[in-house]
Amino acid sequence: MTKRLPILASFLPLIVLMAIAYIWPVAAIIRGSFSDEAGLFAGWQNYADVLGSYYFRDSLWFSLRVSLISTFLSVALAAVLAMALRDTFAGKKIALFLSQYNLSIPRMAAAMIMVFLLSQTGLASAVSHALGFTESVGDFPWLVYDANGKGLIIVFVWKFFPYICISMLGVLQGASLEYEQQAATLGIGKWRRFFFVVLPTAAPAIAVSSILVFAASFGDYEAPAILGSAQGRSLSVMLYLKYVDPDMRDRPEAFAIMVLMGLVLMAAIVTCRRLAAGGARKRGL
């Protein structure tokens, strides 16, 4: 007991900093979500208004769908690449660079690049028209500004798969390789090895990076603001618009949306970790 006090005391500046930088703002948001525009306690009214709104439910579904698809595609692409990149081969350094160079590109720049590349007035459309695949640039499919968020998904996958790929590579080149070799010498074929040995070993790394990708794409503002079909489709854009609306009556709803987004992310974290742990247990690693 006598030793604990000095240790706690040494952590005090950090605790105070965390309280100021994190706990206080979160508490303020939660408080704001239960208040009206005058700051008076409003009970669950803001949540009832938000959850009862068609626009909120539509935006939530849109953001969830785009984030989940982006996460799934990022994991799949990263898994394929990590499996290919873990072996030694000529040109591996170049392949590694190509798979990771986009980490340094800001998300807003990535969104702009997609506009230049994939919009109907972009490079792909012009090339398609020049090669005679489309009669006019207007025939080129809507890949950005579309209602299904295809452009967003492309940006998120392109931007986020390297994170998963790096963490998977670390696992695949380490302990997983030894177990995989052991399984191979026990007569277990390539695909079974992947599902019963490689995937369970990499599951914690995949889970953690998937959560990061999901959280980053679910809460991202820049890309949806640039590539979204209509302002307000993505939850983060809707939240921003409500927060900066001159009509202060919308601000408590913005706080309620923030809390709901936080709850979605917490649920995603818990689900992902449980799935990873369960999968690993089931497959025996």
């Binding site: 030894e178 177990y179 052991q182 007569g187 277990i188 079974r192 247990r281 025996g284 690693l285």
Partner: peptide
């Protein structure tokens, strides 16, 4: 078949499940 320097047992399996890993999975 090969036995390595490290036992490389599947940690969350039982001894029996490790023993019968190859015929069960393969």
């Amino acid at each position: 078949a090969m036995v390595f320097q490290k036992s490389l047992l599947f940690r969350n399996m039982t001894v029996a499940e490790n023993i019968n890993f190859a015929p069960r999975i393969g």
